[in-house]
Nucleic acid binder design. Sequence first.
DNA 1: TCTGGGGTCCTAGGACCC
DNA 2: TCTGGGGTCCTAGGACCC
Length: 426
Amino acid sequence: MKAIVDCNNFYCSCERLFKPHLKTIPVVVLSNNDGCIISRSDEAKKLGIKMAQAYFLSKPLLQQYRITAFSSNYNLYGDMSKRVMDTMQSMFPSTCIEVYSVDEAFVDLSNVPAKDLHATVKELKERIGQWTGIPVSIGVASTKTLAKIANRLAKENKEKSKCMLILDTPGKVDAALKRTPIKEIWGVGKQYATKLEKLEVKTAFDLKLMPEEWARQHLGGVVGVRLIRELKGIHSIGFDEQLSTKKMVSCTRRFGHPLTDLHQMKEAVAMYVSRAAEKLRRQQSAARQMTVFVIEKALDKGDIYKPNEPVKREAVLPVATSVTTELIKPAIELLEKLFVKGVAYEKAGVVFSKLVPNESLQANFFAASSTTEQRLLMSKVDNINFSMRNELVKIAASGQQRPWKMKQELLSKRYTTRWIELREVN
DNA sequence: TCTGGGGTCCTAGGACCC
DNA sequence: TCTGGGGTCCTAGGACCC
C-alpha cells in the first residue's frame, strides 16, 4: 500500500502556527507580488474565496468578511516543510519516502502489515501534528493515484474521516471512484476533462472502465494508459526515493510595476541570474545553456487578464558554470537583444538548462573554465546569505534601489529561520 | 495601480546517418 | 503511378503537477 501525506492548506497553516489568535479567523496567502490568492484556510474557502483569484479583485470580499491576508513567506514554508518531512523520517526509512512537493510526500507502506495499517497511519498523522503543529491528511491505497483520490475524499469531510482514509477493499475503492469527478483525478487536467466529459466519462469509475487503447490514442499515450491502470489498482507510477537533481532551474518574476527602462531590466535579470545560480550550486550542478525571456505588458482589455507570450533568446555557454558573475554577462547580452525601446515589460525570467553535475564537468579546451577561487567565493557568498540575511552579499549589477522589486506588503516574519525574527512571548 | 512561479514527462516531426 | 527501412538525436509544443 501507498500513502500520500498532504499538509492541509499548508501556507495558511504555517502562518497560523505563530499567530494562534488566527486559529478561528479565515486566512489567505498571496502569490509573489501579492498577485493572487494561492492558499486558503477552510473558513476562507467556505466564504467563497476562490483559488488563484486576483488579490486586488478579492479585496472587497476579504474586507467584508475580515479575512486576514499574508504575502508569501517562502523562508518560513520551506523550513516548516523540512520539519514535516523530517518527522516522517522518524517513522519510516528515507527510502520509503518520496517528497513530492513542498507540502506533500508519498510513503511506501509495503512493509506495514495490513492489520497495523490504520494504527500506523494514525500515529504518523498525530506525530506530525504534535511535533510541527501542521495538520495533515493521509490517503492510503494500492497505487499512488488511488491514494490521491483517498486523500481528497478524506479532506472533503474532515469531521467524519479525521483526515484519514484507507481504501483497502475493492468495494471501498469503487465507491471512492464513483464519488470522484473526472477533473479531480491526479493527472487529468482541464483539457482531458473536457474531452472525457464529451464522451460521458464523468467519474473516476467511468474512466477506469475505458479501454486502454483509447487512452493510448486520446489521453497522452502511455500517460493515459498508466492512469487507467493505476485506477484499476495496478501499480504503474514509480516510486522516486531521493529528490532527484533538477534538469532545469529558473527564476522568473513579474515586476512590481511595468518597466520601460533597460537599466532597470538589467538589474532585475542580474538578480534572477543570482537566484537561479544559487539553486544550481545548491544541487551541485552547472548549466550549459541559458534562456532569457521577457513578457510585454498585457493590454488591459477590461474583462479577463490574458498575459502576452514570452519573447525569448538562448545562449549556449562555452563551458558549464554555476558562477554568478560568469552567468550574468551572457544573460545581459541576451536581454539587450530582446529589449525594445518604448515597450513596457511586466515580467522577465532566466532559465538554465542542459545541467551537468559538478563532478562530471567537461573542460572546454578553448574556454577558460571557472577557477577554484571563483567557486570558493561563490560558496562563501551562499553561506553568508544563508546564515545571515537573504542577499546580504549580492552582485553589484543587481542594483541597490530596485524599483522593479516585487510587492510583499503583508509579509510575516521568518520565525523559524532568523533569530532576529523569533516570536516573542510576553 | 494591482492577475504566481517552478517544475516534469511525453510525443511528433525534422535532420541526419547507413 | 508512385519513391527503402531502419536507426538516433534533437527540439518544440502540449499536457500535467503543486
